[in-house]
């Protein structure tokens, strides 16, 4: 395995030596890897938070409804950039206070973890709205049929409502994830060493900003295209059995 990695490294070096003044490989590509990891992890987190939020919004509990409403209103009402700065700095102070109270001392939240959580929380609020709408879009008859079979409420939710809502959630989910992908770039501003952060440093060092920012733009276009392909495949899978008008 290590051998393979080493020879791959050699090949890549050979290919990209001196491309972009030597900053492309491994400097920017390492940042790209971080961008992709960040994207996938925060997307997963946002889906989990979105589920919880949607269930809370549709629940009969007033407290759950109110909490979910504050969450989605505040986060969607202010710029993501502001939320990122608040959570990034404020979050560490909060963690410190909790750590001190519990006697654990300092608990480090790395930029990567902080960034993942921040993006997850932000897009969780958008996912909440998407999932809420999707659940409401499930025909009432299907749910009633479940109850008629004697299923419990949770069984109806997990066996009928949830699977049937996925199809309705996909377009919104797709949009949210494409925006999330682009928003990973914002984390470069809090010092997360993603692709854009690396490009910024390379631009400063070589004084060739256009070259590096343009390269990053092209890579983002490729990532967007790949995500769209993936989303199209998902859409196809979950639309099986639906007649197209």
């Amino acid at each position: 395995m290590a051998d393979l990695a080493a020879s791959l490294d050699r090949i890549l070096h050979h290919l990209f030596d001196n491309f972009l003044d030597g900053y492309f490989y491994p400097f920017i590509l390492e940042g790209l890897l971080l961008t992709i990891e960040l994207f996938l992890l925060s997307l997963a987190l946002s889906v989990v938070l979105g589920m919880i939020g949607a269930v809370a919004k549709l629940s009969k509990s007033r407290i759950a409804q109110a909490n979910a409403a504050v969450y989605t209103t505040v986060i969607r009402g202010e710029p993501n950039l502001v939320t990122i700065f608040v959570i990034f700095y404020g979050g560490q102070i909060l963690v410190n206070n909790i750590g001190d109270k519990l006697g654990l001392g300092y608990i480090d939240v790395s930029e990567f973890i902080a960034g993942t959580i921040t993006l997850g929380v932000i897009f969780g609020s958008y996912m909440t709205e998407t999932f809420r709408g999707a659940i409401l879009a499930v025909p009432r008859g299907e749910i009633e049929a479940g109850y008629a079979y004697g299923m419990t409420a949770s069984k109806v939710f997990f066996r009928i409502t949830l699977p049937a809502s996925i199809r309705h959630a996909l377009p919104g989910f797709g949009n949210n994830s494409l925006v999330l992908l682009k928003d990973t770039a914002l984390l470069s501003l809090i010092g997360l060493q993603d692709m854009l952060f690396r490009a910024q440093q390379a631009a400063g060092a070589t004084r060739k900003p256009f070259t590096f920012y343009f390269t990053v733009a092209v890579i983002y276009l490729i990532l967007t295209a790949l995500s769209k392909l993936g989303l199209r495949w998902l859409n196809k899978r979950y639309s099986v059995g639906v007649r197209r008008a």
Binding site: S188, L196, R207, F210, T211, A217, Y220
Partner: peptide, 23 residues
């Protein structure tokens, strides 16, 4: 449309602000 919706606004701004200064 594809070009401008497929890339982060931050990158577009960097290209227009810092990028143009290169030439």
């Amino acid at each position: 449309i594809y070009l401008f919706t497929g890339t982060p606004l931050l990158v577009q701004m960097y290209i227009i602000y810092y990028g143009t200064g290169q030439f």
